[in-house]
Design a protein around this nucleic acid. Structure first.
Lengths: 337, 337
DNA sequence: ATTCAGAATGTTAGCGTAAACATTTTGAAT
DNA sequence: ATTCAAAATGTTTACGCTAACATTCTGAAT
């Protein structure tokens, strides 16, 4: 084979074999039409024969950019939400003919600075940092001036564009939905009290309940697991006023429903239950859980756009992405009392 | 700023500012120790000041390789199994200081050739093709000679290294476990009949049952959903001989368990149920489903190794990765009859 | 046959880096 | 002071590609 010993066939190997200049090969490779059909054929043959593969390195060195964005995510890339963000980014990238470079951050103490530094050595024109739980250097992190930086996070970053799921709107949508159905006593049974997602939800719940002039009962907190939901459900079953429960996520909602049923309450006839995440479809037989689906694909798509369009504005944008309420059968109007 | 108008600071900008040659900058950037501390300081300062970021393009053009592998996966990157493979690959890549480039294949008819062609234009030294359901060109696909190609698939590819979950071993391990516990009548309730994963499982179940000299009862098939499990469970509840059920996945196992309980059978006292996938942890309150966990992380890690170590052997390797049985509480010895 | 515009093809140069080799500096031994 | 090996630093070059410009063909109009 006419291959060089060290590596792959280059554009000049092809040119030599086809008996043309490298520029002509380049023109063929890039689909310029200023090449005679006969010549094009010869070049294509030579490419085929040598297994020619244009060098990404040389091309991007020449072009000065990569057509690629970097994504830093924690170890558990596949955690709920995150995986859909990944899909959203990947899809947006594919649509724009961009490649996607993934960097997994498995440090004990994940830092934005560390993620960003690692990314700097990679072929990316922009970076999306999706470090989940608040990294320690969240406030202090200064993004590199070399590439646009986007953060996916619950709270806005002072110096970087930020994209978030709109936790407040989630609560507002849910409360409006339940109130519209006739509920007045709506209790909140969330996950870990200090979790950023929880804070926004509580805020939205309070805000929206007040807007409707309804009494706020003490919100309850678990740890996002079905078991913690079950525990809270046992307590809530004793609350005769309450006609609707807004659970922190679907797992907790399932636990709550189980506890209610064991306590002799029917769902949704006696008590309505809303979950969040819409993660139970097809998982539990004959349970159609009303839930709220965050639009993580869109979060990803928006993050991609920001990472590519280097909007170096003074005030970095904070974009909130609203989800959508999914009506199923664990919510119904309250019975007349 | 002393930044060039078109792009970022380059090595020569740094050299100029620090008053040294580019080579010295290069040495500092690459941690060579043949630089006097005072000089190193000057260079580092200049880098800092200019926000210098070494050019990936130039580096890899020089080096002739990228230290990066490509991964092609279908749209639903996050489907069970796939996401852990992704994690395995990402982790292995990070350990070896490799980057990971993701290509999402969303074509209506996914083809290995198409995925491979797209990958060829990206900065990768090797590629892993994880196109799920059998692509049409599986048999005919010829991998490029330029980069090592690994396929993650249920069946081995004739020309590429292949990595698979060992479906046969899954059944063998499960049957051995149940038989060891005293079960003799073990029924199989799988997913879609023709699904590649299902074929291997049935084969392993039959093989292993025969090896123990046990009677094979007709295997049943659903569609991997909890509802289909419930349907099959209703039928299986009438089988008085059967003491153990081997379900195609956890969702089906859950459906089966529900049906059995509604039919008055206790699990595991009357009938034992095994799932596969170990996907129900913490999802259903107070259900501890015995299951089989495929080692998808390892599948990913092995695929990475093969993609990096260009073993261009005559006979491409087919590596089967065994999973591990997870003992929980839906399996118990059969009661004496 | 000659002319000439436009099409086809070729030549040059530079993108940023690091290996290989060349030169200068340093500091210890004389 | 001189010598000289080792350390520090500099120079040259090539990696593969394509924009910009330069040259050579082609074929229709004269």
């Amino acid at each position: 084979m006419a291959r060089k010993p060290n590596g792959n066939a280059s554009i000049s190997d092809v040119a030599r074999l086809a008996g043309v200049s490298t520029q002509t090969v380049s023109r063929v490779a890039n689909g310029s039409n200023a090449v005679r059909p006969a010549t094009r054929e010869r070049v294509l043959d030579a490419m085929e024969q040598l297994g020619y593969r244009p060098s990404f390195a040389a091309r991007s060195l020449r072009a000065g950019r990569y057509r690629s964005v970097g994504l830093a995510m924690p170890c558990d890339i596949s955690a709920t939400g995150r995986r859909f963000q990944l899909e959203g980014i990947a899809t947006a990238a594919a649509e724009h003919q961009y490649a996607l470079t993934l960097v997994q951050i498995c440090d004990d103490v994940p830092l934005l600075a560390g993620a960003s530094r690692r990314m700097a050595a990679l072929p990316v024109d922009g970076q999306i940092l999706g470090l989940g739980s608040d990294p320690n250097d969240f406030e202090s992190f200064v993004p590199p001036s070399t590439i646009p930086t986007v953060i996916i996070s619950t709270r806005p970053h002072p110096r970087c564009a930020t994209v978030s799921n709109d936790q407040v709107a989630c609560s507002v949508d849910i409360v409006n939905y339940l109130v519209g159905m006739g509920h007045r006593e709506i209790r909140y049974a969330g996950g870990r009290r200090e979790a950023p997602a929880n804070l926004g939800r509580v805020k939205g719940w309070e805000q929206s309940m007040r807007a409707h002039g309804l009494t706020l009962r003490e919100p309850l907190f678990g740890d996002w697991t079905a078991d913690s939901g079950y525990r809270l459900g046992t307590m809530l079953a004793r609350d005769e006023q309450c006609t609707a429960i807004y659970a922190g996520n679907d797992a907790m909602a399932v636990g709550i429903i189980l506890a209610l049923r064991e306590a002799g309450k029917r769902v949704p006839e006696d008590v309505s239950v809303m979950g969040v995440d819409d993660s139970m479809v097809g998982v539990i037989p004959r349970l159609e859980l009303s839930s709220y689906r965050f639009d993580d694909e869109r979060v990803g798509a928006v993050a991609f756009d920001l990472a590519v369009n280097a909007l170096a504005t003074e005030e970095p944008p904070h974009i909130l992405v609203r989800g959508v309420l999914v009506e199923r059968s664990t919510v119904a109007p309250p019975r007349n009392r």
